[in-house]
Design a protein around this nucleic acid. Sequence first.
RNA 1: GGCCACGUAGAAAAGUGGUAAUUCGCUCCUCUGCAAAAGGAGCAUGCGCGAGUUCGAUUCUCGCCGUGGCCU
Length: 299
Amino acid sequence: MKKKLPKVLAIVGPTATGKSDLAVEVALLYDGEIISADSRQVYKGMDIGTGKITVSEMKGIPHYLLDVIEPKKVFDVELFKTKAEKTIADIVSREKLPIVAGGTGFYIDALISGEIFPDVPANKKLRAILAKKSAEALMKEITKLDPRRAKALDPFNKVRIIRAIEIARALGSVPMVKRVKRYETLFIGLTLDSVKLREKIHIRLLKRIDVGMIKEISNLHKKGLSWKRLHDLGLEYRYVALYLQKKITKEEMVTQLEQEIAHYAKRQMQWFKRNTDIKWFAPGENKKIAREVKKFLKN
RNA sequence: GGCCACGUAGAAAAGUGGUAAUUCGCUCCUCUGCAAAAGGAGCAUGCGCGAGUUCGAUUCUCGCCGUGGCCU
């Protein structure tokens, strides 16, 4: 007999659909605890711009993987996976329901599918050197090191090629992907049509500006976060940084940012679409969702 | 009423007597450690409308319509 895998609930979907609130509601109903799967909410001090849940909104439900690292440092999937696995084990040991909620599809998939990444840490120096080379030159190098891996790479995507070279240099070649399934998972997806989503994004953005988002970001810079880093952090951090540097007007910031957030939501959907296990709902269909969760927990 | 300029994809905008750059947008897509990141593909048989010149016009000529400006 196979040992039964622990049950995990995953709440996914694009930005601005209300994942956090739903997660809390379900947690209250089924004795759950929440693991955030958001690549930006892990950073301390990035609250308004990331739409991080507030303590009062948590309604007493424990939340994990928020504020785990300084924004100067770089977080990544592997770190996420390690921490999340540990957290889930802990929650399960206390016989509570782990709820993974967030919009970073890559993180969620890595965790749930149990994808094992090659044990090669990021090599900043090497990356900096390789980044100066052309995509063509990089492709030549990876083809020499590992032709199999090279074939699967996008020949124009330097970021990907560089990582492949990084691994190949350390290990001789890039190992095949391994996956070890650790959980039995129910995927609940929250989504909206693009027009309504756009509206929500608009309203939410104005609200964020209203409650001090610009101040938050200018403080981050004052405390030593470079413009470059803020740019890399993306979306609100990128565009507010541009505004603070007076490279764009406030009006431009709002319109461009809104557009970018909408694009981001699209990219998120693009990612989630591939996962056919996701059961999709509209925000507000909480009863239907609760029923689905109940069914999942029963068998 | 007269004169002048302009009229190119959803938007902005280049261009040529030989069959339409570019940017944004839109659609679709990729993903083995930065994923709010990085990257790829497609989207005007058509250049205001009609006629003429020409082997051939979006590009030249004429007329019409529209827009903007100037003049009386």
